[in-house]
Structure formats: structure tokens, C-alpha cells
Amino acid sequence: MTPRKKRIAIVCSILAGMAIAAALILTAFEKNLLYFYSPTQIVNGEAPTTRSFRIGGLVMNDSVKRNKDTLDVSFVLTDTINQIEVVYNGILPDLFREGQGIVANGKLQENKIFKADEVLAKHDENYMPPEVAQALEEAGADIPHQQYSTAQ
């Protein structure tokens, strides 16, 4: 083996070793790297009940109820299959609106209502001028929305 061939072998084995290690780590931690749970996973009892976790879904239309005097707000999160009711007290991000994807951090209470400490908006990868969005809506076309089935 010439020195150069040896060096090529070393570089290749570094790359291969790292790829295998990464693949192993990623498969092992796949569940833990999940940033949020979907309402379906919660209904199926896959989410933890004792500690706080994150829930992701779309805010269901006509489900947002605000208390006029306090910052209390409640809404229903859906992944189009199952729904979870969420209560929250605090300032909502600018993007929060009905039909919007959001991620909430909090705890599932015993009455199956999710009490959120933090609500984050998740925007999708679509960018267009308002006129185009309006035209799309009027034409009855679906404005493409991100998928909320987290199991892939």
C-alpha cells in the first residue's frame, strides 16, 4: 500500500464510520428528537402525562374563545383527525389565527385539556402576495398547508 492509498483509505473509513455512527444514533433517538406530538398521538396516549411536552396542530376554525378582561384564551387544535382543547394565558404571536399551524408547550391535564405555558406559531413554506392568496381562495383552490401528521 502506498502512503497515498493509505490516506485515501483513512479518509474513506472516517466518512463511513461517521455515517454509520450517525445513522445508529439517529434511529436510536428518533422518538426523542420529536419536537411536538400531534393531537392523534395524544388521543392514543402516546404523549407523556406527568411531564410537560409540546403539541402541534392547526387552530380549528371558530374555536378561539378569548376572555375580554384577561389574556385567557382557549382554542381547539386539530390534525384534521383528532382534536385537543388548549387553554392559555399570555401574549400570542402575530401569526396566531384560526387555521394557522401552532406549537404549544405545556401539560396535559386530567380532564384531557392541554394547559399551555407557551404558544408558538409555525408558519408554512409558502410565500405569496396577499392578492394572490385572495385570488386562490376565491377560485376555490386550497392554499397549500403543511402536513400535520407527524408520523412519517
Binding site: 420529536l34 408554512d124 410565500y127
Partner: peptide
């Protein structure tokens, strides 16, 4: 691969980029 808060790719996905031409 994972459900992240960050949204998916806009331009590098295989079908049409989901951004208006003017942008």
C-alpha cells in the same frame, strides 16, 4: 425527518417552489 418548528424547504423541494415569482 422530524416535526420541527422550522418550516419545510421552500425552493429545494422537487416540485414547484412554493414562493411567488415576484418574491
Amino acid at each position: 425527518w422530524w416535526s420541527t418548528l422550522h418550516q419545510g424547504p421552500t425552493i429545494t423541494k422537487l416540485d414547484k417552489p412554493s414562493i411567488h415569482l415576484s418574491m
